[in-house]
């Protein structure tokens, strides 16, 4: 089955991983800007990172027929440094017309601090000003519930936002309902120990339906598994769910969400198949 991984940090992955993803049926991925494993010292460092995301990773993915998309921001962890964050935010517009850039992300909260919330709001301003889609990181573990509530407060206070163009990621059992009820998209991250397993993701689909829901692997610096979406596909099959439902979650939903971005120029592999059959 073809699938799209809507949230995977390929900069932390090897070229072999791109090949493995291609073999597993991945046809496209989106990579939000995130932490580099260490705090960066200057805005120039982010400038280089954005070039890596928009240029190098796109090429690396392309070698295996994978279509690579990206999101730009300063992540919540480094947003604690407000002056650096403002320099980075000021630089983002120059990249927004670059092919493959889908919007602003992953912005969010990490430890739910005032500085993080301040920079989150400034990112919302940027997104509104440039009519960008938004991808949001919610905190982990004991901070997730409060952080998600705070993020929803800030999003719902801003009447300029089109909620169908906002994805709130890393939802779990205690945060998924409010995100979906407020009209946002929700992402479930399959991640050992600190987030969600494929089986629990299937449970949440059974409980909340498949509308506006995505699954991703995160595939970052932590002990994550880049092939977690295929694990989810198998878990859905083992539970007896129809292929059409699985395809909706792993392929149709990400396409529907991303299609709201001007830079989403995805070429579906089915077209090639259809052409081959002519």
């Amino acid at each position: 089955m073809y699938y799209i991984d809507p949230h995977i940090h390929m900069v932390s992955r090897t070229t072999d991983d791109y090949e493995t993803l291609a073999r597993m049926g991945c046809v496209a991925m989106s990579e939000p800007a995130f932490w580099a494993g260490f705090d960066r010292g200057s805005a120039e460092s982010f400038h280089d990172y954005f070039r890596q995301l928009t240029d190098f990773e796109r090429q690396r993915a392309g070698q295996f027929g994978l279509q690579h998309y990206t999101w730009l921001c300063i992540n919540a962890k480094e947003a604690e440094n407000v002056s650096l964050s403002r320099e980075v935010i000021a630089m983002i517009p120059e990249f927004l017309d670059t092919p493959g850039v889908l919007g602003i992300g992953e912005i969010g909260l990490n430890k739910n601090t005032k500085n993080e919330a301040t920079i989150f709001l400034e990112h919302l301003e940027l997104a509104v000003k440039y009519d960008q889609q938004i991808l949001i990181h919610t905190p982990h573990l004991e901070d997730k519930y409060t952080g998600t509530r705070m993020i929803l407060d800030m999003l719902c206070d801003d009447t300029r936002l089109d909620r169908s163009r906002v994805l709130v990621d890393h939802v779990e059992e205690h945060t998924i309902r409010s995100v979906l009820e407020e009209g946002f998209w929700a992402g479930m991250t399959l991640y050992p120990v600190s987030k969600c397993t494929p089986e629990r993701a299937v449970d949440m689909i059974e409980m909340h339906g498949a509308e506006r829901l995505l699954v991703n692997s995160a595939g970052d610096w932590g002990p994550s598994k880049p092939t977690a979406v295929p694990d989810f596909i198998i878990a859905m099959r083992r539970r007896g769910h129809p292929e059409s439902l699985i395809r909706k979650v792993v392929y149709d939903n990400p396409r529907e969400f991303f299609s709201q971005s001007e830079n989403f120029d995805f070429a579906p592999p089915e077209l090639d198949e259809a052409e081959a059959n002519l």
């Binding site: 005032k114 509530r149 705070m150 059992e173």
Partner: peptide, 20 residues
């Protein structure tokens, strides 16, 4: 999940001086 979560403070925006 809720047992393992810190509690949410409804007044956070006021405390952070970040009211809409």
């Amino acid at each position: 999940q809720m047992i393992c979560s810190l509690s949410y403070d409804e007044q956070w925006q006021e405390k952070f001086d970040l009211l809409p």
